[in-house]
């Protein structure tokens, strides 16, 4: 079965109380170190973003298929994979940001969670993106469509990213290479 390469979801736009992008959201804000003893992925979702000011109740409100949008350097800091897994636990459909922490991006790619870089994201006019907006992402071309109206460009999936995504995750991808 092929996984869809055009995905649609409702956005959660990670802005502060004044409507500004929150840059450098680190892995301690996404999944705080006091929960690191948790190894069951299903138990991780409830703590997603609970150390990010103004977003403490995100996990209780997010629905499967929702997408997260953030500014620069989302997922900075530690290599902890729980900061990706907590979103997978909630069924988050995609992560979109102007840039990501390097290890964070790899973790998402290897988990098969769509992660899309939009280089000009924070240069777009304030108010362009709002929580609740509908976003469609074409993972092949990198084209994004907001509320069926505004088109903008992100980076398309690399080949290895698409292969891992289609396989499901890095392990399944590895199995396919073996065969």
């Amino acid at each position: 079965m092929r996984r869809p390469t055009k995905i649609i979801g409702q956005l959660w736009v990670l802005l502060d109380s004044e409507g500004q992008w929150i840059d450098d959201i680190d892995t301690d804000m996404i999944f705080h170190n006091r929960y690191l003893h948790i190894t069951d992925i299903d138990a991780m979702g409830q703590y997603a973003l609970d150390n990010l000011k103004g977003w403490e109740t995100f996990a209780q409100q997010a629905k499967p298929g929702d997408m997260i949008m953030a500014g620069k350097n989302f997922g900075a800091g530690s290599s902890r994979q729980q900061a990706v897994d907590c979103f997978r636990a909630l069924g988050i459909g995609a992560l979109v940001a102007e840039s990501f922490g390097a290890i964070y991006k790899r973790n998402a790619i290897n988990s098969g969670l769509p992660i899309v870089v939009v280089p000009e994201l924070t240069k777009m006019p304030p108010g362009t993106f709002n929580t609740g907006d509908a976003l469609m992402i074409d993972l092949v071309t990198g084209e994004l469509l907001l509320n069926g109206e505004l088109t903008f460009r992100g980076e398309p999936f690399s080949r290895v990213q698409m292969d891992i995504y289609q396989a499901g995750n890095l392990f399944e991808y590895g199995r396919q290479l073996e065969q």
Partner: peptide, 11 residues
């Protein structure tokens, strides 16, 4: 020398 995640380390 570069950092990676846990799934990747297992792989």
């Amino acid at each position: 020398a570069a950092g990676i995640g846990r799934t990747e380390a297992a792989a």
